[in-house]
Nucleic acid binder design. Structure first.
Length: 921
RNA sequence: GCGGGUGUGGUGAAAUUGGUAGACACGCUAGACUUAGGAUCUAGUGCUUCGCGGCAUGGGGGUUCGAGUCCCUCCACCCGCACCA
């Protein structure tokens, strides 16, 4: 009876499906546990071995929690809207609905092949109208809400209208435009259009103008991904900025709560740090500077008001609205030329550029309010319009970028920190004494900040201000394959559609070409757009993160037709207990999900305001490419070790036709016609490939399909091998070669239970203390490691256990049965099979997790390493209860110690019970 | 540029969190069984040295009886940066 994994795995996968054993109820007396994976985008390329890493980890954890007596929610779905599918449609004419369905089916097949315990009855697909109906519904909640800064929560917009009628907006600064102020009387006199304009400035989902990447030649707006070095990826056409009216989510209103919420969740410090940096809270001041010979004012935001006497120039973002009005005639030409240059630069390039300093003087001067000094006003690309006020006061002695700028353009530098500034680089210290600083002279910088702000407020030209680097989230895409907005425009004024008319289904189109003026493809469907003579639909669609911002809630109640998820269900499942996914979502997806949850909480639809109680970041699995070396100008290939004797070109070959580094030459010849007649120069009769670590990508022929490995070694081996590779959090390259070690382990385990000739060989003998010790050491380790997502060390513990039991020839039920339960989360198919052979009728999934008992592992003696001056020289075994003096005596009498001590005297001896002994001489 | 992460044998890694560096595997070497071996088993395998020993956790410095682990500093690589998902 041998380990026939193919038959076993098929058998149990069918059994599980037929018995609905993974079906989860929302009604259970057991404690709940919600284990979530970041759901995948169902790309046409299918899953490669990098994807399941996190899925296997959560699957093991989910099964473990189930065995520990929890009601576990473990689900899978698809984040199915997205650019690649639309791009594919554009190229092939295949409708995204069709390709999405095909891709999803392929993904599901691959996932099932690995034996996951998902409750498939809860599967979601964000591109399904029954799902995106609720995405649209939540959008409407955002549209119909505003954020009350006094209460620090979202409220229905109707409440705001009530407030305006009572008292105008004097107690509620307009977040969209601070300058908007009106009384109750004025509000009452405004017409509908004006009122709705004002309300728009308060809504959590709102319309505003923002720049997009516009490609005239393609007639379309491009994603950042599609722009490379200022030209389109497709075709290489020029790309410029274009202002368009777009939807935004007012996430900035939640900046502080998103920041504070981090204190209540269990994310890694690195992850929290990334989110904090993204939110970018800073305290400082807004200061208005008057201009020389101009009525305008420049408003800057600075975190260092204490350095105001060190301001040697001002920098405006090139897009700043004042630029055109302050530029002097002499500088006009230079400024316009510079603006043209900036137009072609991406935001990333603008921030990252360090070697090349660019900028242009506007000819204007600002006036320092404290000493009347004239400060030249420049524009430069390193100042971005969206940050702060889009203008900075530059203090070259304190800021390195300002310093570089001043040096480059020969702007004189004022030193306000005395010796702390060495003249060759800026010093951003906050602990120097101020000099050359008028009334601040002699003051420490930190207290000076408050002094300056108070003075500015007194003078009415500045104020204390908390700023966030985070910007409101763009929520429009000029694309087809996304959720349509439930919005109609009546005479150009946007209105929410009625809830009963949801979902607004994505209309069927024949082609996916962009609409006029940068609008999305939906703009081309005039009979869909034009509902009535002056009533038009919104033609933008929602971005990729819309559907993924709340999918974890839909899993709780996936078939509900009346609401996104019943409050009873969300109260029961509550927060996601463990969420596993890649760091690449550190800021985007996680912040949006946290935002949506908070809004739904504020509006009373949820009972919790942080979606994810704890988060684990899985590392990326890198590709390990294989290279062959073609001798230049020939079709002859030379093995890696000999390649330096020739002039060669390295070519990527499919990793699946290479065993480790040894090329399967026949397979290569069949792989591509160009290799059919190839000849080879071998070393030791083999062709050895070169190895290169890089991204796992189809293009580099280094992707490995889990299906191939499952077919060759079985799902249980595959699962355990992925875990054996290393810590889940760590990135590592994929190497198929090592999988055989894990496969051998499972076969060895199998042989503890069954013999090829004799069949099942498990006996009923009583276990020895030694066997019990092995078992209980393993229980302790596996329980601990599984609970802590330390699956790699758990797998090696299983190996050690099986190695030890095999060498003891142990085939005892009392030992093997608990071991099988321990292993079930890792190798569910094999365990089910052996469990059945052991005579159980009930699935092992419902077994009881073994309990560690200390009495079996207690030690009475310990073998100490004996170190002389910290270097281990020998070992000695002592009873753990032996007195320190006795140990000391025995150590000094040890011949090895005596030898090392020769001629030297003992300084001290360090004895750590149960750890080590160090003799210091 | 900003932010985050990672550096330990030929390879993936482990190290009870300051206490025997390299567990467990892959690979490699030798052997046993075998018609066969890409099955199984046994032994060996960080570098260096005949050996005693010496040297080793990216480089340099420090704290300590003791450092992969703590501190300072430098370097290399990977990921993210707001329209890829």
């Amino acid at each position: 009876m041998e380990y026939n994994f193919r038959a076993i795995e098929k058998k149990w996968q069918k059994q599980w499906e037929d018995s609905h054993i993974y079906h989860v109820s929302n009604d259970s007396p057991k404690p709940k546990c919600y284990v979530l994976d970041m759901f995948p985008y169902p790309s046409g390329a299918g899953l490669h071995v990098g994807h399941p890493l996190g899925y296997i980890a959560t699957d093991i954890y989910a099964r473990y929690k189930r065995l520990k007596g929890f009601n576990v929610l473990h689900t899978m779905g698809y984040d199915a809207f997205g650019l690649p599918t639309e791009q594919y449609a554009l190229e092939t004419g295949q409708h995204p609905v069709v390709t999405t369905e095909q891709n999803i089916n392929a993904f599901r097949q691959q996932l099932n092949n690995i034996g996951f315990c998902y409750d498939w009855s809860r599967e979601v697909n964000t591109s399904d109208p029954s799902y995106y109906k609720w995405t649209q519904w939540i959008f409407l909640q955002l549209f119909e809400s505003w954020y009350d800064r006094n209460l620090q929560k979202a409220l229905p917009i109707k409440t705001l209208e009530g407030v305006f009628e009572q008292e105008g907006n004097k107690n509620h600064v307009c977040p969209g435009d601070r300058s908007i102020q009106f009384t109750a009387e004025e509000w009452k006199q405004y017409d509908e259009v004006t009122r709705r304009d004002i309300l728009m400035q308060y809504r959590l989902a709102y319309l505003a103008y923002a720049e997009v990447n516009w490609c005239e030649a393609l007639g379309t707006v491009l994603a950042n991904d599609e722009v490379i070095n200022g030209v389109s990826e497709r075709g290489g056409y020029p790309v410029v900025k274009k202002k368009m009216r777009q939807w935004f989510l007012r996430i900035t209103e939640y900046a502080n709560r998103l920041l504070e919420g981090l204190e209540t969740v269990n994310f890694s410090d690195a992850m929290k740090e990334m989110q904090r940096n993204w939110i970018g809270k800073s305290q400082g001041a807004e200061i208005k500077f008057n201009l020389k010979n101009n009525d305008g004012q420049i408003e800057v935001y600075t975190t260092r008001p204490d350095t105001i006497f060190g301001v040697d120039f001002m920098v405006l973002a090139p897009e700043h609205e004042l630029v055109s009005s302050i530029t002097t005639p002499e500088q006009k030409e230079a400024v316009e030329k510079y603006l043209d240059y900036v137009q072609s630069r991406s935001e990333r390039e603008r921030m990252a550029e360090v070697k090349q300093i660019t900028g242009c003087f506007t000819g204007a001067y600002a006036i320092n309010p404290f000493n009347g000094r004239e400060i030249p006003v420049w524009i430069a690309e390193y100042v971005l319009a969206g940050y702060g006020t889009g203008a900075i006061m530059a203090v070259p002695c304190g800021d390195q970028r300002d310093f570089g700028f001043a040096r480059h353009f020969n702007i004189p530098i004022t030193n306000i920190i005395g010796d702390a500034f060495n003249g060759t680089e800026a010093n951003p210290t906050k602990d120097a004494k101020l000099q050359n600083s008028g009334f601040l002279d002699g003051m420490e910088m930190r207290p000076a900040m408050d002094v300056v702000i108070n003075k500015l407020e007194e003078m009415g030209i500045g104020r204390r201000q908390i700023n966030y680097k985070m910007r409101d989230a763009g929520f429009s895409r000029q694309r087809y394959w996304g959720e349509p907005f439930p919005i109609v425009y009546r005479n150009g004024v946007p209105y929410a559609m009625d809830e009963k008319d949801l979902p607004v289904e994505l209309p069927y189109v024949e082609n996916y070409k962009p609409g006029p003026d940068g609008e999305g493809p939906l703009a081309n469907i005039t009979d869909w757009v034009n509902i009535a003579p002056d009533v038009k639909r919104e033609t933008n669609t929602m971005p990729g993160y819309a559907g993924s911002s709340w999918y974890f809630l839909r899993y709780m109640d996936p078939h509900n037709k009346n609401t996104f998820a019943d409050r009873k269900a969300t109260d029961y499942w509550n927060q996601v207990d463990v969420y596993v996914g890649g760091t690449e979502h550190a800021v985007g997806h996680l912040l949006y999900s946290r935002l949506w949850t908070k809004v739904l909480y504020d509006l009373g639809y949820l009972g919790f305001d942080e979606p994810f109680k704890s988060l684990i970041n899985q590392g990326m699995i890198g590709g390990s490419s294989r290279l062959v070396y073609r001798i230049h100008g020939t079709n002859q290939y030379v093995s890696h070790g000999l390649k330096d004797q020739y002039q060669t070109d390295a070519l990527h070959v499919d990793v699946n036709i290479v065993d480790g580094v040894e090329l399967d030459i026949e397979a290569l010849k069949k792989w591509k016609p160009e290799f059919a007649d190839a000849t080879f120069i071998l070393e030791d009769g083999k062709y050895i490939c070169g190895v290169q670590l890089e991204k796992m990508s189809k293009r580099l022929f280094n992707t490995v399909n889990p299906n191939d490995l499952v077919n060759k070694y079985g799902a249980d081996t595959f699962r355990m091998y992925e875990m054996f590779l290393g810590p889940v959090e760590q990135s590592k390259p994929w190497d198929t070669k090592g999988i055989e070690g894990v496969h051998r382990f499972l076969k060895k385990l199998w042989r503890l239970f069954a013999d090829e000739q004799k069949g099942i060989i498990v006996n009923e003998q009583a276990p020895t203390p030694e066997e019990l010790k092995i078992l209980h050491k393993t229980i302790q380790k596996i329980d601990h490691d599984t609970n802590n997502f330390s699956f790699n060390t758990a797998v090696s513990s299983f190996m050690i256990c099986v190695n030890e039991l095999a060498s003891l020839n142990c085939h005892k039920r009392a030992i093997l049965e608990p071991l099988l339960v321990l292993l079930t989360p890792y190798a569910p198919h094999l365990c089910e099979e052996l469990w059945q052979y052991l005579g159980h009728n009930e699935s092992i999934l419902n077994a009881i997790y073994p309990v560690y008992e200390e009495k079996y592992t207690a030690e009475t003696a310990f073998t100490y390493p004996i170190a002389i001056n910290g270097k281990t020289r020998t070992e000695m075994s002592f009873d753990l209860n032996l007195a320190t003096e006795e140990i000391e005596k025995a150590v000094l009498a040890n011949p090895v110690v005596e030898k090392w001590m020769e001629g030297k005297s003992l300084k001290r001896m360090i004895i750590i019970k149960g750890k080590m002994i160090n003799v210091v001489i």
